[in-house]
Each structure stands twice: as structure tokens, then as C-alpha cells.
Design a protein around this nucleic acid. Structure first.
Length: 297
DNA sequence: AACAGGTTCAACCGCCCATAG
DNA sequence: ACTATGGGCGGTTGAACCTGT
């Protein structure tokens, strides 16, 4: 029944890794590949816990890691995503090639968190709909999920001094308000810079001209095991500020699903959606539109 | 130069879900 | 169906480093 223990933790070395240990670990993984962390220390001849080996490899030794200072662009992405999804460092790091969750977390704690000006936080955060999390996700899901609202209300308002990442990927002039004080403002700004044709594509088959400007109900559904799942749905419809290319004539009814990093129309789960522009998305449905390529163009 | 206080970040801790048994 | 473990996650710690006096 079950498996044998991960490690006995007796007689194992702890603390900083030496260059020699790094070399042993790197050589072993390059020869045998990742995985089987429990047996790795013994096989490689390391007096370390398997977990420690895994951490060392993932956070430091991997060849695809991007060492060095966090760039301004990366910083903006971190700030923006943190404002959206909170302390979900692995997901944030997934948007930053070569960066680890640990690195992102450290950078936030030591640099970015101080830039969030408490006085700029909105007094009335957007209504948030918390739905069951359909995504497979390991880790401390439930505990994290329960912190979502708390996190958002405490510290996740986009830094008004930090431009949204999409601003760095496009030369389009936008009406992004540098002093935006609400989550809705940020999303409206994002909506405003979307290409008209992209919106047209996105709305094919979607609900056009849907009812907007209705107060979004705040709903909290208990997910599996009574744990609040982490999808947030923020209704930002109908009030989009305009620029020359925006859709003043439409009554957009936008839903933003933070969990899936998608922007949706009409409030229906299966309605058309747009991905985060900086997210690599496999388009497997005509109703979905990856836009990262557009921003890179 | 010496010290104190602040900052950074690698590493550890403990929790959680998926899954082997 | 149930238990124990592997792997992954966010939170925390503390040594090393930095900065000001």
C-alpha cells in the first residue's frame, strides 16, 4: 500500500549547495533526465533530499533559466499579472520564459510590492464571481483560492505607475489611464487597444449588443470539497472609454476570467473569448482567438 | 574601520492534489 | 474505497550582502 517515504531526512545535508553538488546534480539529470526525484539523490550520490534536488534544479541549474536582472518589461508583466491573479507565482512565471516562480516571488516581495501605493487602491473593488476551478492544478490550490479575494482587496490593484504589459507590445496609441484606479479601468484599457477586426472575429457567434451596465452580481460558489475555487469573473461591460478605434456604438458586455486568462463576451461560459495577449495559447476552437502573435507583429 | 539596520534571494517548510498500490 | 507517497505550490526563514552612520 502506498509508496515508500520520500526520504528519511536523517543524515542529509541541508543549506547552500556547493559547486560540486551542483555539478553532480546537473550531470545526473543531463544523463538521465528529470523526474524520479526520490531516487535521484541516491543514484547520483548526493546526500540531499529529493525535494531539495528538484528545487535546486528547477530554480538554479536548469539550462533554460534566464539569469540576471528582471527587465522593465518583465517587471510590468509581473505587476500586471499579480494585480490580476494574486500570489500565483508559478502562473506568473509561466509568462516569463526562463524565470522561476521563486524568482518572481522574491522579486515581487523585495521590489514590486513596495511600489503599490495603498492610497491608489480602489475603495470599491469590482464584483467578483468565484466559480469552481475546472483547471487541473496541483499545489495549495484551496488555500490559495481562499485568499484570492483577500489578496485582491489588499494588494493587487495594478500599479498606476506601471504600464500594462500590452502597452509595450504595441505601437497603437491607447487611452490607458496611467492613473487608473480600478480593475475595470485596466481591463477597459486592454479592451480598447484590441484591433477592431479581432473583436469582430471574436464576436462571431457571440452575443452582440448584449445588455450591459447592469450591476454584476457577486457570487461565490463553493467548489469541490467546499473550497472556494479561484476563477474570478469581473464584469466590465458597457462603459468602455473610447479612442478612435473603439466601439462606441456597441454595448459590450465583457467578462474577464482571471483563472483562464481570457476575456469573454456575454457572460456565458462558452461565449467567445480572447486570450491574454502575452499568453501562448493553442487555438483549438474557432471561438477562441490567441492574440499574442498579433502583439508581436 | 566598525557597527547596525535594511535588503536580497536561495533554500526549506508544510500543505495540497493526483495517483500508485 | 482507502492510504501513503510524489510532485508541485506558496509562504517563510536566515545567511549573505548592501547601505548608511
Amino acid at each position: 500500500m502506498g509508496r515508500t517515504p520520500c526520504c528519511e531526512k536523517v543524515g542529509l545535508k541541508r543549506g547552500r549547495w556547493t559547486a560540486e553538488e551542483d555539478a553532480i546534480l546537473s550531470d545526473y539529470i543531463q544523463a538521465h533526465g528529470e523526474g524520479s526525484w526520490r531516487s535521484l539523490p541516491k543514484n547520483a550520490g548526493l546526500m540531499r533530499c529529493g525535494k531539495s534536488c528538484r528545487l535546486r534544479w528547477i530554480n538554479y541549474l536548469r539550462s533554460d533559466l534566464r539569469r540576471g536582472n528582471i527587465s522593465k518589461e518583465e517587471e510590468n508583466i509581473i505587476a500586471y499579472l499579480h494585480a490580476s491573479i494574486g500570489n500565483r507565482w508559478s502562473q506568473i512565471a509561466a509568462h516569463l520564459p526562463g524565470r522561476t516562480d521563486n524568482e518572481v516571488k522574491n522579486y515581487w516581495n523585495s521590489h514590486l510590492s513596495r511600489k503599490i501605493i495603498p492610497s491608489r487602491r480602489p475603495s470599491n473593488p469590482p464584483n467578483i464571481t468565484i466559480l469552481p476551478n475546472l483547471n487541473k492544478r496541483k499545489g495549495r490550490t484551496s488555500r490559495s483560492a481562499m485568499k484570492i479575494n483577500k489578496t485582491y482587496r489588499q494588494s493587487t490593484i495594478p500599479n498606476p505607475k506601471v504600464a500594462a504589459p500590452h502597452q509595450q507590445h504595441t505601437t497603437k496609441q491607447t487611452n490607458v489611464d496611467p492613473c487608473a484606479t480600478s480593475y475595470e479601468d485596466e481591463m477597459l484599457s486592454f479592451i480598447d487597444i484590441l484591433e477592431p477586426e479581432m473583436l469582430t472575429m471574436a464576436t462571431d457567434g457571440g452575443s452582440m449588443g448584449s445588455v450591459a451596465n447592469e450591476p454584476a452580481a457577486s457570487v461565490i460558489n463553493e467548489g469541490k470539497d467546499g473550497v472556494k475555487a479561484v476563477s474570478e469573473q469581473v464584469e466590465v461591460g458597457g462603459t468602455s472609454s473610447s479612442n478612435a478605434d473603439s466601439f462606441d456604438d456597441w454595448n459590450w458586455d465583457w467578462d474577464f476570467d482571471v483563472e483562464d486568462c481570457v476575456l469573454g463576451l456575454g457572460g456565458e461560459e462558452d461565449d467567445t473569448m480572447l486570450s491574454w495577449p502575452w499568453e501562448s495559447t493553442t487555438i483549438d476552437d474557432d471561438d477562441f482567438l490567441g492574440v499574442d502573435a498579433w502583439f508581436q507583429s
